[in-house]
């Protein structure tokens, strides 16, 4: 038994934390845009953090539970309702067989995630459940979810379990906002920018353009210039790499970015702040703040340590639901 997609929403896909080990073949990792949201929700329900999640945009999917499930939602706030009752992000809920999950209004953010306790049954491709839309494979038949799709659940929950007042600690949840300052470290070609462009990058703010998707966010702002023309040989790019396009505008590479690129790399969004940019949509703004690599690593390490404590607590409670 499964969840049933009654309305598909816009670009609803199955994702996890990405497909690693195949970049050398041009197969990009893909995966959830907001990996922190996917991890937090999976941990909350006692799942492996790499368990498949449903990634949704607004208008989001309408989902019918064909069997009992413990689930959680998070990331963007799309004002979710379970059988007409408003439910909150970052908390476990019990959905009784026959209930419907709807998302009624876009409150904040652009990508919402749904996880179920025990996970979805998804056939993995190259070790991952993520949907590779370009290669039309992975996830649910390599495509966005459609009305009538059934996504089977791994876990059988017989009766309503006792769900205590548990939620994700607020210092783990990214501080989502429509105009975040995200921290970056310099890219290899940053020193090749004119002095004024170097300064500008960290003073001005940039607007996320309409021409933004899971591959990358194009930014609109004051043009950034190279001191001298420079041709970069195709080299490896990463999630969060900020590239300078020939027209002087910037693009931030996102989850479905190509494995390689030939545009100058002016910076890289740090892992800790990727969720902040991943939740932006067209018209939102972003500013960059330059930090050193040691600080970026320390921020990532601090988050992982907190997550470890949290993981232990959640596992304890989630074990009781699965019995």
């Amino acid at each position: 038994m499964s969840i049933l997609i009654k309305k598909p929403g816009i670009l609803t896909t199955i994702q996890d934390l990405g497909r690693v080990g195949y970049r050398r073949l041009g197969i990009n990792p893909g995966g959830a845009m907001d990996r922190t949201a996917a991890r937090l929700l999976n941990i909350l329900l006692g799942n492996d953090e790499n368990e498949a999640v449903v990634e949704m945009h607004f208008p989001a999917a309408e989902i019918f539970f064909e069997k009992n499930a413990v689930f959680a939602i998070g990331g963007a706030d799309f004002s979710a309702e379970l059988d007409g009752e408003l439910i909150a992000n970052w908390r476990p809920y019990f959905a009784e067989k026959g209930s419907t999950l709807r998302f009624t209004k876009k409150i904040s953010g652009n990508r919402a995630y749904l996880t179920v306790c025990g996970g979805f049954k998804i056939e993995r491709w190259l070790g991952s459940s993520s949907t590779n839309l370009a290669a039309k494979t992975g996830g649910k038949d390599g495509r966005p979810l459609a009305a009538g799709d059934h996504i089977p659940l791994s876990l059988q929950i017989k009766a309503k379990p006792r769900i205590r007042n548990c939620h994700i600690s607020s210092n783990l949840i990214p501080y989502y906002r429509p105009f975040p300052t995200v921290r970056v470290i310099v890219g290899a070609e940053f020193p090749l920018l004119t002095k004024s462009s170097q300064g500008l990058l960290y003073v001005h703010d940039f607007v996320v353009s309409q021409n933004s998707n899971r591959m990358g966010f194009r930014l609109k702002g004051a043009p950034v210039e190279l001191a001298e023309p420079f041709e970069l040989l195709s080299s490896v790019a990463s999630f969060g790499t900020i590239q300078l396009l020939p027209d002087g505008q910037l693009i931030v590479l996102m989850a479905d970015h190509q494995t390689s690129g030939g545009y100058p790399r002016v910076g890289h969004v740090i892992t800790r702040d990727l969720p902040l940019i991943a939740q932006l949509g067209p018209g939102d703004k972003v500013a960059f703040h330059l930090i050193e690599i040691d600080e970026a690593e320390a921020l990532a390490a601090e988050f992982e340590l907190e997550l470890n404590f949290y993981r232990i607590g959640c596992k304890f409670q989630a074990n009781s639901w699965q019995q």
């Binding site: 195949y22 050398r24 073949l25 041009g26 197969i27 990009n28 590779n132 370009a134 494995t259 390689s260």
Partner: peptide
């Protein structure tokens, strides 16, 4: 020299 851009390109 390398694969990139698309899977297998």
């Amino acid at each position: 020299y390398m694969l990139g851009f698309l899977p297998g390109f």
